[in-house]
Structure formats: structure tokens, C-alpha cells
């Protein structure tokens, strides 16, 4: 057990060290009469001390991507193809392909929580109502270490202090329903950090929160990341949160990565028509009052009614008949941080 949590991580990996590499990940849900390609060929890298933002609207597969990495996809979902390479110990261990591990195997369980931890959108439903927050954090600690009860308790208090819970000695004995939404989310993060993971996946961590509370939590995550060289995967539908938090961005639409790149490039030089349209259509606090927004026509298709070819083509302003509706565009690599899947930039086979 590290001597103290408040200090920086003893052997923190250098920022930028690749920790997690996802390659060609495909997770499908096979129902009686149709296949939902929830995640359909997703690739990205996550680095120590950096934030990867995954952004997209409902049904784009961003949450399933996170769940696939941890091997906790609900049935009938199944990883069909692809690799998820984790370098454990913050980039010091031998890489493991998580996609090959059975979801209930001992190896996978050792990785969940210890190497990769997850923070959910709705903190209330991810806590048990019958145990104090301290008990729940202690359980997470003792699952992955041989700490005694006293040690685990002391560490739980320390973790609560770390995430900015006021009076942690008292809060540790409270039940989740006694906490406000913002505090619950802090406790959730404390629990995720209990075993000192190197990768933190935050799935819509602030969507259920008010904007001033959201600011607190985002601030906390940034601070923790800097202290502990956390590799952070931030999943959200909110372009504003992405702009504030992410270093690299993956834009998803109907299970496919349409574009990937550094945050500045995504916002100031978007390549894919979907990214361009999305950026134009989001309401901005910087806008002139009472101005119309550019819109994307139509709505997101039902996943079982997926369009042929490029899934975005029915809504795309740059739609080329006979091309976009015939084949799915391949990914065009622009440089090692940037790629786009669109026929405008090659995208042929």
C-alpha cells in the first residue's frame, strides 16, 4: 500500500506513456432477428496523464465501448473482433489483450478496479443503499489487497478527503442517500480510485449534475489526473465538456469512429461532415441572442434500421450518390493522432 495518497504517485508513469490501445473493436448484439452493431471497428490510444474524450449522441456506442474494454457488456452483447491492449502497472508490465480474457476470469477481475476503474453517470444506482459509503469503499480496497479493516478504513477516509468530501471522518459512516448528487459523484470517484488504477473511464460523469456542480467535478478530475498521471477516458455527449477536458477526441456515430484527433483540430478544423454539422448545431453560450442554429436534417436511425454504406449518408450535406450509400468508408490516416472515415478524404478500400 502506498504510504500516502495525497502525495503524487510514487512511481507515476511519464505523461504520454501509452497505457491502453484499442484496435478494431467490434461489439455486436445478436437478437433473434437482427444484429445491432453497437461498436463497429473502434480504434484509439489512451495515454498516462492525458484525457481521451469519446463524444457522440445516443446509440453511437460510446458506453458500450467502455463496457467492452472492461468486459462487462450485457448479454446478448459480445466482442466479435478487435484487440484491447493494456500495459499494466502504468506502462511497466507486459501488455495483455483484454478482449481475449473471459469476462469472469480471475485475470479480468484483477484488472477491473485495480488497473482500470469506471465512474458511472448515475451515482445513486451504482451504490448499495444498505451499506455506508465507507463500507463500500473498504470493500473495493480489500478486494484487491490484503489490507486489514483498520487500514482500509483509514484509507477510505483519506480517499474521501482526496476527492474533496468535507468532514470525511463523519461522511465515511453515512449512507449514499444522505449525500447530495455532487457528493455522491465525489464518493463514486473515491471508490474508483480506491485501488490506485492507472486508467479511469468516466461514462457521462456529470450529465446528471447541475452546471455548478459539474464544474466542481470536472475540476476535481483534472486535479486528480495531474497528481496521479491518470489516463482518463471521458465519455460524454456534451461538446462543451469535451472542449474543456479532452486532449484527444474520438467522435462516434452509430458504432463507428467517424473522426479522431487532437481536441484543437477537432474543434477548429473538423474534417468529417458529421463533426462539422454537430459543431455548427450545438447551442453556444457565446452566441448572439436569438440566432437560429444550423441543423442536421433528420434524426438518428434506429440501430436495427442502419442505413447502407456510410451510416451518416442520409443526413450528410456532402452525400455523394452511388458512393456513400454503397460502401462503408475506410479510415484515412492523416497523421498518428488524426484520422477520418469519409469518402471526401479517400476512404476507398
Amino acid at each position: 500500500m502506498p504510504p500516502t495518497l495525497m502525495a503524487e504517485r510514487a512511481a507515476a508513469p511519464a505523461a504520454g506513456t501509452p497505457i491502453l490501445s484499442v484496435r478494431g473493436l467490434k461489439t455486436y448484439f445478436r437478437a433473434d432477428d437482427g444484429v445491432v452493431r453497437a461498436v463497429d471497428g473502434v480504434s484509439f490510444d489512451v495515454r498516462a496523464g492525458r484525457t481521451l474524450g469519446i463524444v457522440g449522441e445516443s446509440g453511437c456506442g460510446k458506453s458500450i465501448t467502455a463496457r467492452s474494454i472492461l468486459g462487462i457488456v450485457d448479454r446478448p452483447g459480445k466482442i466479435e473482433a478487435g484487440e484491447v491492449w493494456l500495459t499494466p502497472g502504468g506502462g511497466t508490465g507486459a501488455p495483455i489483450d483484454l478482449a481475449k480474457l473471459a469476462s469472469d476470469s480471475a485475470e479480468m477481475r484483477a484488472i477491473r478496479g485495480k488497473e482500470i476503474a469506471l465512474v458511472f453517470q448515475e451515482p445513486m444506482s451504482s451504490f448499495s443503499h444498505y451499506y455506508t459509503v465507507g463500507n463500500q469503499i473498504m470493500e473495493a480496497i480489500r478486494l484487491h489487497s490484503d489490507a486489514t479493516k483498520q487500514q482500509a478504513h483509514a484509507r477510505a477516509v483519506e480517499l474521501l478527503r482526496l476527492v474533496g468530501v468535507p468532514k470525511p471522518e463523519r461522511r465515511v459512516d453515512e449512507y449514499p442517500f444522505q449525500l447530495s448528487g455532487g457528493l455522491r459523484q465525489r464518493v463514486m470517484i473515491a471508490m474508483a480510485l480506491a485501488c490506485d488504477p492507472h486508467v479511469l473511464i468516466a461514462d457521462e460523469p456529470t450529465t446528471a449534475l447541475d452546471v455548478t456542480t459539474q464544474a466542481q467535478i470536472l475540476d476535481l478530475m483534472r486535479e486528480l489526473q495531474a497528481k496521479r498521471a491518470l489516463a482518463l477516458i471521458l465519455i460524454t455527449h456534451d461538446m462543451g465538456v469535451i472542449a474543456e477536458m479532452a486532449d484527444d477526441v474520438v467522435v462516434m456515430y452509430l458504432g463507428r469512429v467517424v473522426e479522431r484527433g487532437p481536441v484543437d483540430a477537432i474543434f477548429h478544423d473538423p474534417k468529417h461532415p458529421y463533426t462539422q454539422a454537430l459543431l455548427r448545431s450545438i447551442p453556444s453560450i457565446m452566441a448572439t441572442p436569438r440566432t437560429k442554429l444550423a441543423t442536421i436534417s433528420g434524426s438518428i436511425p434506429h440501430p436495427l434500421n442502419r442505413p447502407t454504406g456510410c451510416p451518416f449518408h442520409p443526413r450528410c450535406p456532402d452525400f455523394k450518390p452511388g458512393v456513400c450509400d454503397k460502401a462503408e468508408p475506410a479510415t484515412t490516416v492523416i497523421d498518428d493522432r488524426r484520422e477520418v472515415a469519409c469518402f471526401l478524404y479517400g476512404g476507398g478500400a
Binding site: 468535507p166 447530495s180 455532487g182 457528493l183 447541475d210 452546471v211 455548478t212 456542480t213 459539474q214 464544474a215 466542481q216 470536472l218 475540476d219 456534451d238 461538446m239 462543451g240 465538456v241 469535451i242 472542449a243 474543456e244 479532452a246 481536441v263 484543437d264 474543434f267 477548429h268 459543431l279 450545438i282 453556444s284 453560450i285 457565446m286
Partner: peptide
């Protein structure tokens, strides 16, 4: 003022100094 400053702005070049309100509502 705090409310306005807390709204995330969809532009990475505008990493504004947010006013973080202490405590809960």
C-alpha cells in the same frame, strides 16, 4: 456570474477561469 462561468464552452482555446462554488446548494 458563477453560473455563467461554469458553463463549458465548446471551444478548447477558451479554457476560461471558472468560478468554482464551494459547498452544495
Amino acid at each position: 456570474e458563477a453560473l455563467l462561468s461554469a458553463v463549458p464552452k465548446p471551444d478548447p482555446r477558451l479554457k476560461s477561469e471558472r468560478i468554482i462554488l464551494e459547498r452544495d446548494v
